[in-house]
Design a binder for these strands. Sequence first.
DNA 1: TACGGTGGCTAACACTGTTAGCCCCGAAGG
DNA 2: CCTTCGGGGCTAACAGTGTTAGCCACCGTA
Lengths: 182, 182
Amino acid sequence: MAEDRSARAQEIVAAARVLLEEEGGDGLSMRRLAERLGIRAPSIYKHLPDKRTLENALISDGFVELAAAFEPAVGAGAGGREQVVAALGAAYRNFGRRHPHLYRLMTDRELDREHLTPGVEELAARPLVEAMGGDVDLARAAFAFAHGMTVLELNDRFPPGADVDAAWARGLRALARADDPG
Amino acid sequence: MAEDRSARAQEIVAAARVLLEEEGGDGLSMRRLAERLGIRAPSIYKHLPDKRTLENALISDGFVELAAAFEPAVGAGAGGREQVVAALGAAYRNFGRRHPHLYRLMTDRELDREHLTPGVEELAARPLVEAMGGDVDLARAAFAFAHGMTVLELNDRFPPGADVDAAWARGLRALARADDPG
DNA sequence: TACGGTGGCTAACACTGTTAGCCCCGAAGG
DNA sequence: CCTTCGGGGCTAACAGTGTTAGCCACCGTA
């Protein structure tokens, strides 16, 4: 990832990733990042034009990782649509749970797509579209469901005793089984 | 709403709501809010303990308004489950589109439920659970879908030509028709 | 008349992203 | 060998953030 980043810029992005994972979005400040690198905050700007660019780098890498996380589910394509969708959903959910702060960074606000590594968003989106047989409306519905479940779980939005597994299963099954609109 | 707020506190919350709607989440600062009220920022703290409390007030009011927005859909309960769910979904989506900044404030992060107006979250959640015949897992799945669709639309996450209406319709129909798990 | 609460105020602290301007060091060219 | 130039650090500073401390004026009440 990130062939167009200088070596030093890549080091900074890598440190930012660790900082983000360890301390969350609020902890990701230019001064704290610089501290981890043993330099001062303004020096970062010799390598990256602003914080937004840094975040876009993290987001781009996140998409690549997410696409990679989908690969096993795609590989197991022998099972029917329902199995593939279930596997993709589980991979998506696990990505969110393993990288909650990165996940929030990736989804909280608008993407500025022209500053992401090109193609990376489509790369992560394709497996679900294919699993849905090219039905983009249904794929978008399933994506919205997966994102909603993931972010609501991360934000502790479900009641304490809620059976999140069951809600995932019900939703994914209903969407995977959806008939063609008529 | 908000019987436990002093009159002055309620004025401040009302001004904050206007500021939020007009200038977005980033514009909602204590100094800018104070400016609109003709006072200085520290004076706000005579009426509200901190910014979080102010935001919680906005969020609580938001839930009340959201519950109110659901009422027509509930009233039209004569149609089958599919119609009621569609109407609830449309009401939810419209709430998000009419109040995008408030919607983000309400959903972006964890709720600190103990500081919200009590019962207000349940008030907004009940109509969907009832529409789903008390099936809480399915209601949660539908809620996740609706939230996902709304926030992805607000964050311009769908491709430019995407048929968001169609994705909404597909998802809500599939979920409303979901059979009992077996 | 004195008092206490209400609701303002200024000054300040610790933080944020970011810019301007300085300096050192190492590599390359004349 | 000397010079020049760019990479990559630095400090100081600015405007903004939430928040606290401490001061003061008013106003109703005992």
